[in-house]
Every structure is written in structure tokens, then in C-alpha cells.
Design a protein around this nucleic acid. Sequence first.
RNA 1: GGGUUUGUAGCUCAGUUGGUUAGAGCGCCACGUUGACAUCGUGGAGGUCUCCAGUUCAAAUCUGGACAGACCCACCA
Length: 894
Amino acid sequence: MSKKDNLEFEKAYIPKDYEQKIYQKWESSGAFNPDNLNLSKNAEKYSIVMPPPNVTGTLHMGHAGMLAYQDILIRFHRMNGFRTLWLPGTDHAAIATQTKVEKIIKDEGLSRHSLGREKFLARVDQFAQNSHDTIENQIKKIGSSCDWSREAFTLDTTRNKAVNLVFKLMYEDGLIYRGERVVNWCPRCHSTLADDEVEYKEETGKLYWLKYGPFVLATARPETKLGDTAVAVHPGDKRYKKMVGKEYEIQGVLGKFTVKVIADRSVDPEFGSGAVKVTPAHSFIDSEMALRHDIPTKKIINEDGKMMENCGKYAGMTTIEAREAIVEDMQKMGLIDHIEENYEHKLSLCYRCDTVIEPLPSLQWFINVNKKTDSLDGKSIKEISTEAIKGGVFGKEKINIVPERFEKNYLNWMNDLRDWCISRQIWYGHRVPVWYKGEEIFVGESAPDDGDWVRDEDTLDTWFSSGMWTFSTLAENPDQMKIVDGKLKINSTDFKNFHPTNVLETGYDIIFFWVARMIIMTTYAIGDIPFKDVYLHGLILDEHGKKMSKSKGNVIDPLDMIVKFGTDATRLSLIIGSTPGKDIRLSEEKIESLRNMVNKLWNISRYIIQTIQVDDASIDKSSLTIPDKAILEATRSLIAEVSSDLKAYRFSKATELLRDFSWNELADWYLEATKFDNSTEKKKILTLVLKDLLKLWHPFIPFVTETIWEKFNSSLLLIEKWPSTSKYDNILGDFDDSEFYLFNKTKGIISAIRNIRAEYNVSPGKKIEVVIYAGEQTEFIRSQEMLIKSLRTGVEKLTIKECGNKIHNSVYISQNGIEIYIPLGSLIDTEKERIRLEKELIDTKKYLVSIEGKLKNKSFIENAPKEVITRERKKVESAKEKIQKTENFIKQLS
RNA sequence: GGGUUUGUAGCUCAGUUGGUUAGAGCGCCACGUUGACAUCGUGGAGGUCUCCAGUUCAAAUCUGGACAGACCCACCA
């Protein structure tokens, strides 16, 4: 190590001085790409396909957390010699991105229709490209060690090929069909939405009680009266029994119309008057009832959310305008019984633009989730996707969800799943690969040559393509994909090596949107599972437990935090204190405190590398001191625990152990001990421990550890071998286990002396005398003399004897059978000491009583395990001894 | 309405299969420039583990209930 290097070791770690350079070094090394690592052919495979961020803007804390978790797993496995692939990418996020661009061009006075499909799409592509570049840069800032050479986009040509092939496959299998059904329609997006793309919001409105022929019935939407074709009651409702099956003439605002009375179980007799008007065109439940009872459908609301031409003078009004107008007219006509104010109900909203959803009948493409098919061994999509979680499919083990409780969630959702509407009337996305010529339909990538085929105008639900993400990304080009025997075959090395992926790491909020869709698409198209494990992280909330949102102004931007406190601290703040599936609260203070942690590690390393220097020679067992053995044992157990924690996704536990080890065991005790204990082995031990510690920390805080590694090693920490416990087993194997914990006794004595000094306000510079009577432990305590005198105790004269007389004018401590006297002379306040000792005596006596009580209990002796009883007996002995010694001392105090 | 989940120090959270005189970080108080670190050190105060009942020799930990909060699904027209 040169002098120059030492000087470069700044007093504090300044992340921004290093992070960019370090990332470039990693990236240019090529080590993110497993093909470059000279791994043996038999190396175990490990793969994660990154959940692709939407190209709608920038990354937030949730993304940072997701990237941190995945990067930890990836770095851990890479260091463990796995052929490790982390494949990055972005999602075109059809509706979301289109909506965003529509807002932007609106400010320019443009609309997508005024621009036309081609020009509009060019604008969206441009926006998506910019977004992509920003996002890629941000993913790098977070330190993600993903393989950029394999980057994918859900809307690129390779992924488009997969979409077209799978669409065709499902169509030919009869699983994709076109049909006219009531769908969730967003009048603003001008498109359908899937059931789970609809959100609900509480609203206080009015409930209108209408005079409705022979009925009085309640509705929140009187304007839909124009589309009514029936009245429904519960089959068991005696009030209406005689009316079921009959037809009645109803007075409406546009004249009289006829409805049929039907009996249906879905009607709640407790609600309103127990009779409900049925509008099959504009309500899911009503449309289902209409199908069951063969009731006609009358559509009265169009795709703009406005009343249609069949609505007479109300035509062209929005539903809200029509409601007001119709209510006014009905009141005039005496058709309103009364109006109930403050009626609580829920509005359905579009999850992308918050517009009120209008259910209406529309001709759309659907995936049939209940149809049994030969290509799924005679099972339906719903059945196979359920079994994949329950017991496993295709001879594979079941997919594990962490935490397990979400499996139930998934299964419930799958059980209730209705046919999935996959067509969207937006422009940005994968175009439905269907062509029409008169009555003829052709499904395929391009139209047949004969004649005028017209392509379907619609695009596909964005989740249709992201549902294929785990396998479509493993194809390098479109030509590697083919349909063979009713399955999609991907002929690529990556697919062979890395599918199924090991773990899908994502937030629990998209388990239905995405996790379920991937299982559906992969089991169907590939005949395999997409991943073995699913690890679900929680949402990141602000310090008060509220969701972060721009409108609340409580957003913590990861990039701001990276600038302020560094990437490593930001990453740690998202890991520490988190448990799977549970939300985590984040505050700037938390990130700051972890910045301190990172800096502490920096300074530990600074001290070792700069002051102690490093020495890689092998350690001589015969000269190990008590603190040496303690730190070696602590390191051994740290390696074992961090490794097993990472295998079991216990991220937080691992970081807590690392923090406690670094700050307490190493910095506060061992490092301090080495300053005064000139063991010849300390350099070697510190070198060994520091190197392994940096390796263990590396997946969590890659930048600072790599930066430190550079100071004494030319290789990349990124691809260092993960530490093993065997080196420590070799060194420690010969020692008695109890030796590892002897250092705790020394620590206890030192802390006790410091405590008394502080309590008596002994000024820091003042030297004191200490007398210890250690009985059987005298020899051991003598070996610790140097440490007891040196570690900030200010002990000048230390006397260690087996036993001796009580010492007057001194503070007395009894600990682990050792008597400690600190003669403070005039500083002693006899009364204060008496109070302190008597309080301690009372506490110890209470403690003794409780344990003796246990031991006197016959059933305790009979039932408790032997080792518990022995432990309790030992407690009694030591408590008694302490009481006796303390009592004796109090007597002499006066 | 159905389901999930949480309630431990002022705050954020640990606490493996029941046996600890219940822990950490932040914050707070006192003292402090001792060969890395004031982004630091040393010491301290602070908890009837939400409440009630039960199981057990033994409950923060298991069971039931109450109270309070968070979330998800369904949805009433």
C-alpha cells in the first residue's frame, strides 16, 4: 500500500465522489453478464427477471426498494458462484402512457384524434423513449447489477412476436373469443378496462324512491330508467309473489313502457322496497339477470358517457345532466315518491384517470378462463393456475409465495375470476393480431395476400404482454420463437438456462394484475411455471404511515436521498425494519441514521487499512487472546446467519446482524481492544474479519464496500467469493466453546467501572484505583488486566486477588461472583451508596423470591425440562451470593 | 358483508419451536477533542408487552373475546 492511497482515505465517506465511478467500473468489467464470468458448465443457475417499470416518467421509492431487494439476491448468488442473471426492462404500460401523452398534447391544443393514429403514436414513442432513458439511468444510480446487454421492452419486436403467437394459439384453442358483453367502460380513455383496473371510492349521493307502476323502488341512478326492461324481486319475497312473471305498464318520462317482473336470488329483499328495476345494458348484475331470465337489453348510454338518440329530449346529455333533468321532470309528473339524502355508496372509477366507469355492452375480445382445453391436460386456465399454487403443476413443485398468507388471497381471486377482457380501444400497445374481410376473420401477424383485409383497430391489455415477461424476455430475437405441438417453443440458451426463473420479487399490490397473469400465460403458452418463489414486499409509506403522493406533498424522492445521503444509505433504509408483505414507514431521519452506519463502516475500514495495515498471512492459533477468539467466533456465526437469512429472504434480519456486529462487536470492543493489546495476530485477524465483513455487506451496500475494497485489493468485490465459515472452523475448532464468551466477563467489569465513574461524575482525566476479588476466576481476570485498565476506564492501579477484606470508602459492585471495589475516597457519598446498594438488594431479593417460588412448585419440578430447572437453580445460587455479599458491604458502610 | 393484518420504551420496530431480571435504532438527559469516526465516544432515564378471560408448572409468545387501527375482495340497485 502506497502512502498516496492512505492519504486518499477521506475522513468521512462522500458517496457522490465514488458512486458513479464504481458503477462504471462494474459495468465495463462485463461482470453483470453471466456469460463473461468463466463459470463452469455445471454452475447452478439463478435468475430474476426485473419487474419492468412503466415508461410513464420516473422511479419512486417503491422502485428503489424493489431494485434493492433484487440486487441483494443477485449479488449474493453471483458471489456464491451461481450463473446469475438479472434481466432488466421496461413496460409500455399502454393506457397509463397514452393518458400521460394525451395530457401533454392537450396543453398544445392537440388531441390524439386531431393528430391521427400514426403521428400520435410517434409522439408516444418519443415520450416512452425519453422516459426509458431516465429510468435506465435511475436504475443504475440505485446500483442495480443487472445485465443491460439483455434489456427488453414489453412492446419491442421480440415481445410482439410472443404476443402474436400466443394470441393465435389461444384463439385456435377457443380460449380467446370475441363477444358482445357488458364491460367496464372508461368514457375518457374511450376504452374497456379489466375488472381489477376499476377502483372504488366512497361517495355521498341521493337515493331516489320512484313510483314505478305498482311498485315503489329505490335507485341511485334514475336516468337508467330509460333502459329498464324488467323489475326483479327475491323469489322468497311474499310481498311480490303474485306479481312474478306478470308484465306491467310503467309511466316514464318519455311515455309508457312495459316491464316483466322476474324473481332472482341476487336481489336483496332487505334493501329498499325489495324490488329493483333492471337495466341490463348498464349494470353487470342486471345483465347477468337478463341473461338468466331472457330479458331484452336496451342500450341508452354511449361510449362518450352520454345519453343516446333513443333518449328523446335527453339525448346528448351526460348521465349527470340527464339525471337532474329526468328527476325534475319526474317530480313534475308526480313519479318521485321521495328522495333520501346522504346515501352512502361507492363510485367505480378508472384506475388511470379517475373517471367514473360506465358499464355498457360492447363487442370485445375475451379470454375464457373456464373452458377446459386439451393443451392444459383437459383443465381450464382457472384450474391450472389454482393448482400451480396449491399443489404444483407439470411435475413441478408448487409456487411458494412469501409471505404465505397471500396464497389464500391469490386463490380466492382466481376462484372468482371472470372472463378476462383483453381488448382496449386505445392506440398505444400491441395491436390485436386479427384481420377482417367481410364476414371472414383471420388471426395472425400479417394479413393474407388475397384482397382487402382490414386490421382490428384495438390494442391488447398491457397485462397480456407483461404476463409473458418471464419467458418472452429470454428470447434473443423473434426467430427463436415457434409454435410446436400447441405450445410456444423458445429456442435460446437463455431460455434453457434460466427458465423458470427463481424468484419473482414484487409488491403485493400487483399480485392480481401481474403475478396471476404471469402464471396464467406461462402455464398455458409454455407448459411450465414462470417462477419458483414469489417474494412480496410491502408498500413504502411516509413516516406517519400514509401513502406517498404528490397531492399530499409527502413524497420522498429516492434520487434526492441518494444525493443527500448516498445510495447505500437509501437502500438500507428500505431494507432494515421491513418484513415480507408488510408496509414500511420511511423518513429522512431514518436514511440519515443509516448514512451514519455506512460512514461507520468506512471509518472502521479506514482505521484498519490506514493504521493497522493489512496482512493476509495465516493466523497462528496458539497466540489467540480472549478478544481474538470472541471476534472470530462472532464472525463465524455472522457468516452462517447472514447466509441463511438471505436464503430465506430475511433481508432485515441480515442487515441488523451486520450492523450490530460492525458497530458493537467490531468497532466498540474488538477494535478498541486491539489498540492496547499488542497481540501479534491482530493484524491478520483484522484483515480476515474486515475482508469477510465487506463481502457480507456488499449485496446490501455495494458502493461503499467496493470503494473500500479498492483501497487494498485490485480485484472486484462484486465477483469475490462469498465468505465461508470453514476458515473459522479451522482456527477455532480446537477451543472449548466457553472460551468464546469469556470476553463478556471482561466487558461486564469494564462497563461497571465506567458506569460508576459516570454516576459519581469522576472527571474523565482523573485516574482511579480498582480492587477485584475474583475467587476461582482470579487467573482469568489477571489475564484481562491490560484491557480493564485501558478501555476508557481510567484505572491506574488495579489489584486482583482471590479474596480480601472489604474496602472502606469505596463503591462496591458484585458481578458474576466477582467483587469489585472502587475506592473513591472523599468522592463517596455514603448515604447515596447505601441507597443504591439497598435498591439493588431489594431488586435481587425480589428476583430470588420469584425463582425460589418456581422451584418450590412441585408441578414445575415434575414438568419442566431438566435444563430449565438446572438453570433456575444456578440463578438462585448466584442471587443468594450477591445478596450476602451486598448485605455484608452495606453493614460496613457505616 | 367476506378476508387478511397490526397493537411491545416518546417514535420506528426486533423478540425462532412458550422458560430472557423484555432488546435495538432514532429521540431525550449527563459527561467527553483518550492513536478510524462529533456522520463520534461513554454512561443514564424510559415498558403492569392494548384490555379481559382461558390453556399451562410457566404466556409478550398459544386459544377465545373486547377495543383500536391498516389493507384487500365483493357490492345494494
